[in-house]
């Protein structure tokens, strides 16, 4: 009798928690900047023990791929491997001032939400949300995101590569006409090799030459750089 009772109680608890934890989310991400583009977003739910990045710790290889080149495939595999839920990756850049909407259905255990995308033009800057507790109560919630530096590449601010380990910034077509050329490079060093708050772009006002290929009056930012509106159904 006793065994049967506790078994029943256990079953009841499980069904209650499944009601409260699995969620259907609509996630709107708005680029709040005037002149920074975002590479395709990774929007993922996972267990609270998992983490896509940790401030003050070295970036994983998967995060580095995203932060240096905008490639989220490594992070998608990572989340899949943890039985997480990944919103469909939308392949376009997100232009300044614009909003992108994602739908995400989460499984019971995946109560944390994380978001990442690379900032262009930067060497290894990214916008991030790390392990945000998904509310169990239906409603609309707003979160403002900061820009981080993966700490994996020197911020030389000149045209180059999005491949891991190669210097310079990737320059996809929409950015190409917006950047200068032939900068000599702002720096060759990265002092803080852990994930940290990005110090921002220096830039310069020269189309040709100077130290940076970034336009200083347009391609800078102050935090926050993105607004996330999560609707829990």
């Amino acid at each position: 009798m006793k065994i049967r009772n506790s078994f029943l109680a256990g079953a009841l608890l499980t069904s209650l928690s499944s009601v409260s934890q699995a969620a259907d989310l609509t996630i709107e991400i708005q680029n709040l900047t005037q002149g920074i583009y975002y590479t395709p977003f990774l929007v993922a739910a996972h267990t609270p023990e998992a983490s896509l990045f940790e401030l003050g710790e070295a970036a994983t290889d998967e995060l580095t791929m995203m932060a240096e080149g905008g490639d989220v495939s490594g992070l998608v595999s990572l989340v899949d491997g943890l039985d997480g839920n990944v919103a469909e990756v939308q392949g376009e850049l997100t232009a300044p001032g614009t909003t992108r909407t994602f739908m995400l259905s989460t499984d019971d255990a995946n109560t944390a939400l994380s978001i990442t995308a690379m900032l262009l033009p930067t060497n290894d800057g990214f916008v991030g949300l790390d392990n945000w507790d998904i509310p169990t109560e239906a409603g609309t919630y707003t979160v403002f995101l900061n820009a981080y530096d993966a700490g994996t590449e020197a911020n030389d601010e000149i045209r180059g590569s999005g491949a891991v380990g190669e210097a310079g910034m990737p320059v996809p077509p929409p950015l190409d006409p917006l950047l200068g050329s032939n900068g000599t490079g702002v720096t060759t060093e990265e002092d803080n090799e852990t994930v940290h708050i990005h110090r921002g772009n220096l830039g310069d006002s020269m189309e040709d030459g100077g130290s940076s290929d970034v336009n200083s009056t347009i391609q800078r930012w102050l935090n926050p750089v993105a607004k996330v509106t999560v609707t829990v159904q």
């Binding site: 005037q34 002149g35 830039g203 006002s205 200083s216 102050l222 926050p224």
Partner: peptide, 20 residues
């Protein structure tokens, strides 16, 4: 300019390289 409202990117200033 871009003709939409955004968060401000901050000023550059002469000391930070904008000579004009």
């Amino acid at each position: 300019d871009v003709d939409f409202v955004s968060m401000h990117p901050g000023i550059v200033s002469q000391q930070d390289g904008l000579s004009t």
